[in-house]
Design a protein around this nucleic acid. Structure first.
Lengths: 367, 367
DNA sequence: TAATATTGCGCAAACGTTGGCGCTAACACT
DNA sequence: AGTGTTAGCGCCAACGTTTGCGCAATATTA
């Protein structure tokens, strides 16, 4: 047995008042490295090294080590991440900017991003841009101040001008759902073109010739690709593309309602509606109910986004499902790839396949 | 006109290399107070004071002021919130802990909390506890490290033991949806007791005598109060309370499905189901469809949570709506009350009324 | 006994801000 | 010339961590 009594300082605690059982209404006296160090009469360095598991590497004696970690536990010590972040230039935080959390599609993405971040021991700063470009810009500024190490962003605008600074600052970014095809920013999105194409094909295959589109925010990539997929399918069957059948400018329920109302009034020839989001579909449903149109007998409908309830609607709805969980998953993966090896050239975009789920909202017609 | 040329130092910029247009793959050279100060040959204090709008109060000359703020703009300066937080002991951040963001009910709350925080210029650190107490504990630790100034929490556990530290540390907390009646922690929740009571009354009033409950997580306050409301309504009509009719232990869709399946097999006498969440109701719908039971002809159903789609289901569903937006709203309000005046005794809990929305999923029967 | 190796730990600077205190220069007034 | 006032700013310590460097003891070896 080797004797280990070497330095063997008295590690009895000094007479320092205990961590002060927080007098009523006073500031909380967070335990710090210094407090522990003083109490044990060692230096802050030693405490720091023990508590960050560097004891061995720095040859701290087992005596000291256990003394420190015991006292730390007893004092309920938690390192101040602000100080640490300042020193290490690491905040272990990513930002998440989403247009509307109350939309289950985005909520699903957010859910997955939060989980993924957690697995990497990162936290998530959440910003809801409320589909408002100014709020988004504000949010991005805020996240910069806070030195997030990466960003998952679903941009609302049709331009990426406000992202310039961020990419210049070498901040890892992943766009999700909406992206800018011209920019080399990495993104993950659903294959909206193919999805819309398939959906439209289904309608055409069922004999529909006059198909209306309830589109979302114009200029956003999901919307543009969906419109294009729709148009391509029509063209492929040598059907005319009537621009006046493509209506709306928002992914929200209201827009679906209003545009459907107008459509029913002005275009008696429409036999099918393609709604570009779940909320748009719900709005359309409301309008159709008011006008006493039955689905699919009077009019067929098909919608982007599959949601748990879609199968239980009055007429179970045929949908183009987007893999939103996977989108969130892939987004965090891409992001942490960038964070962990910033030198590597960023990947381009990733398109995830959609899935056409056929239910009963499309009727075969013979004109 | 007074002459203002007093100190009138040459405020031409010194010859210092510009903010270094980020060489490829290098760390980003975030602009700091010091950089600006050096360039202009003033002290950091001066820059700090100008940029925090204290120029007047500290008698900084207009010359200097504009010079500083111009250069700051030019350099795209953003103050480092970590340093600031460290110095000021303010992080301008609150934590939000939610069991499951993919549940639209919680997503709605989160949405509102994010908005409210933003209005107070606070950021939100988001944690999804995945209905898992360990993850929740972990999340709370994490938020402490990060020195959030307040917490909106929807706890998953049936005990508040893990919150002890936090309240001891005087951290402002607001519980939302789920709470602990015995503790004096402020909370905001729906009036689940009355809601369930009303729902059950409706069923009873329609002649139902054998009513099953798909309950959520046992021991959580919403569930317990709903069960109690259900039982009180039965008792009030001198109907027996059969414990074997109260089934399940989760708010999820799976549980609704499975328990309904079992119920249909074992209890042929059940004429109505009360689902304690929207997801439970969806699960029940799935089971009922599989077993070819029609709603409301074969069986009546009523559910907690109103969601946009509820009106468009095969049978529009009668629901007990919870004011989730208001819940989020009130939660942030309560939280910021505490943050802004910590001396005041915390408010107790707030119960928001539910709203019974009658649609067509309940049938009048005569036994 | 002297030289060398090893053990165990401390010093102090740095991260970027902020604010109390106080200094200097210019002017005003005796 | 001396004293007082004011404008305009700077010094420096502090917030809580981390880490490169180094130093004093003891242990080992020659």
């Amino acid at each position: 047995m080797k004797k280990i009594a070497v330095g063997n300082k008295r590690l009895r605690q000094k007479q320092v008042p205990p961590p002060a059982a927080s007098r009523r209404g006073q500031a909380k006296p967070h335990t710090t490295l210094k407090r522990i160090a003083d109490q044990l009469d060692v230096s802050m360095s030693t405490v720091s090294r023990v508590l960050s598991g560097q004891a061995r590497r720095h040859r701290i004696s087992t005596q000291t080590e256990t003394a420190v970690s015991n006292l730390a536990r007893q004092f309920n010590f938690v390192p101040n991440q602000l100080a640490r972040g300042l020193r290490l230039k690491k905040t272990l935080t990513i930002g998440l900017v989403i247009p509307d959390l109350s939309n289950p599609f985005f909520a699903g993405i957010a859910h997955q991003v939060a989980l993924g971040a957690r697995q990497h021991d990162y936290s998530v700063l959440l910003c809801d841009s409320h589909e408002n470009i100014d709020l988004e810009v504000q949010a991005l500024g805020l996240l910069r101040h806070r030195h997030v190490e990466g960003l998952v962003l679903c941009p609302v605008g049709t331009s990426a001008a406000h992202l310039e600074d961020l990419v210049q600052a070498q901040l890892p970014i992943v766009l999700v759902d909406r992206y800018f095809p011209d920019l080399s920013l990495p993104y993950v999105a659903a294959d909206n073109l193919t999805g819309a194409h398939e959906g439209t094909e289904l309608l055409i295959g069922n004999g529909h010739r006059c198909i209306a589109c309830l589109q979302g925010v114009r200029g956003t990539s999901p919307n543009e690709f969906r419109v294009r997929g729709y148009q391509q399918a029509l063209a492929r069957h040598r059907l005319p593309v009537d621009a006046s059948l493509i209506v709306g400018d928002s992914f929200g329920e209201q827009s679906g309602y209003i545009e459907t109302k107008l459509l029913l009034r002005n275009r008696k020839d429409v036999t099918a509606i393609f709604a570009f989001s779940n909320l748009l579909a719900l709005g359309a449903l409301r309008a159709l109910a008011e006008e006493h149109r039955r689905i699919p007998d009077d009019i067929s409908i098909i919608a982007f986004d599959d949601q748990p309830y879609a199968a239980y609607l009055a007429t179970p709805m045929t949908t183009v499902a987007q893999p939103f969980s996977e989108m969130g998953d892939v987004a965090v993966k891409l992001l942490f790839d960038q964070i962990q090896s910033p030198e590597r050239e960023p990947t381009g975009g990733i398109l995830l396949p959609t899935n056409l789920i056929i239910r009963r909202s499309v009727k075969k017609i013979t004109c």
